[in-house]
Simulated assay, not measured.
Amino acid sequence: MPASSSDSRQQGGSLRPLVPGLLACAAAVGTALAVHLLLPALPAMTVAVVLGLLAANLPGVSGWSAGSGRAGLDFAGKHLMRSGIVVLGLKVSVVDVLGLGWPALLLIAGVVLTAFAGTYGIGRLFRLPPPVSLLIATGFSVCGASAIGAMAAVRRIRQQDTVLPIALVTLCGTLAIGVLPLLIGPLGLGPEAFGAWAGASVHDVGQVVATAQTAGASALAVAVIVKLTRVLLLAPMVAAAGIHHRIGSDAGGKFPPVVPLFVVGFIAMVALRSAGWLPPGALEAAAVLQDLLLGMALFGLGSAVRVGHLLRTGTRALLAALASWLLIAALGLAAAVVLIPGR
């Protein structure tokens, strides 16, 4: 009994430093969801990152976020991000994706791979470190912050090195929400074509929804399917990166799994959703849980971004991200025109 009591005290002591940061994450995601309800054009995940940035840089709270709150904020940025990726799998139905047809699937896969290679090349052209270039390429081409978290895990990239790529992918995805709808008229796009463009080129699922819904329900329906096809590519891309890491590394056999456990969980959730066994209520609850987990994770990651440091060191990264955003927007537009010939 005394040993058990000692173990409990040790566990409580190890969890206690996490509490302040996790409570702040929960409060932030609640605020972000409330803002989204009031202003549907603002995705809750984007608001969560912005709140994290404020926590890191406003006098009075920046010291707390770097001090007593840091342990919980870092825990959220790493572990809740991975949990959110698992739950994200419940959004993806292989049946719906296959409904696009093989030519469309191959086209979308081609856009993702071209965007990945092009964005990585742009990052290296701007002399960004290889890990940062890799994470930016993954986030821009697949599914934003979730993809960055998965790639960082399989390549054993430090959590602090994910902060800048996530900030950039959030910035450019938010930029798309405002810019892409303005181009519907000049480009002569119909609702379905615009939805395909948003789904093929905007980074995060929430940002895709916010962008596509401006053109109506038909645009939103196409955008979500195209976007979730990109999300489905997360697992094979992470596995390929893990294999490449093993082949090219001299780590003496000390490697992370080719596919991390949380990505296996993501695949399992995709299979569960595709089987059609879950009632609509369960899927709706899972969507809320995913928002909570990813929102808390993004607040935690955003709280590590010091704007002054970012302005001093991130100019080249910002230029690379904007160039990459233009590249994927162009690729997505070309794919949309092919997918919806009449536009």
Rank of each mutant, 00 (worst) to 15 (best):
V169I: 12
E284T: 09
V222N: 01
P165Y: 05
Q159L: 15
A167P: 03
G101C: 11
L232M: 07
L134K: 01
L233N: 09
G308Y: 00
G300K: 11
G199N: 11
V154M: 12
V97T: 04
V35M: 06
M151T: 02
L183N: 10
K227G: 08
A223S: 05
T229C: 15
V92W: 08
V202I: 04
L22C: 14
K227C: 09
G110K: 06
G144P: 07
L175M: 12
K91P: 13
A147P: 06
L113V: 14
R306D: 01
P20K: 14
W102F: 09
L90R: 09
H203F: 09
V112E: 07
P20H: 06
R312A: 02
Q159V: 08
P256T: 06
P131H: 12
R306C: 04
V337I: 06
A26R: 15
A271F: 13
G52E: 04
V61G: 10
A115I: 12
S141I: 13
T119A: 04
G295C: 11
D250E: 07
S146R: 00
C143A: 03
M237V: 10
A323Q: 06
F262G: 02
C143P: 02
P130Q: 13
L125K: 01
P129T: 02
E192M: 06
Q10S: 13
A137C: 00
A176R: 11
L261E: 14
T214C: 01
I85C: 10
A239S: 05
S201C: 12
A215S: 12
L39M: 15
G77I: 02
Q207G: 03
L42T: 13
I340E: 00
L333D: 01
T114W: 14
G21N: 13
S65A: 12
V111Q: 11
H203Q: 10
P43I: 02
G30N: 15
A268G: 14
R312F: 00
K78M: 15
G89C: 14
G144T: 07
V50Y: 07
G242M: 10
L319Q: 05
G308V: 00
H203D: 10
F75M: 09
L228G: 09
S324Q: 03
I108A: 10
V50R: 03
A321W: 00
V47K: 08
G216E: 01
L135K: 02
G149A: 11
L42R: 13
L51R: 13
V92T: 12
S201K: 06
A115M: 07
R124T: 07
G60V: 08
S146C: 09
L58E: 11
A317D: 00
G173N: 14
R127C: 14
W325E: 11
P103Q: 08
T170F: 05
V231L: 05
A329N: 04
M1Y: 08
A304I: 08
N57E: 09
I166D: 06
R9N: 03
M151I: 01
L175H: 04
S93E: 02
L294W: 03
P130N: 05
L318Q: 00
G99H: 01
I122C: 06
A66R: 11
A285N: 15
P186W: 11
R16F: 14
A251S: 11
S146K: 01
G21I: 08
I247G: 01
V95S: 12
P181N: 10
A193R: 03
L100P: 05
L107W: 14
G118N: 13
I166E: 07
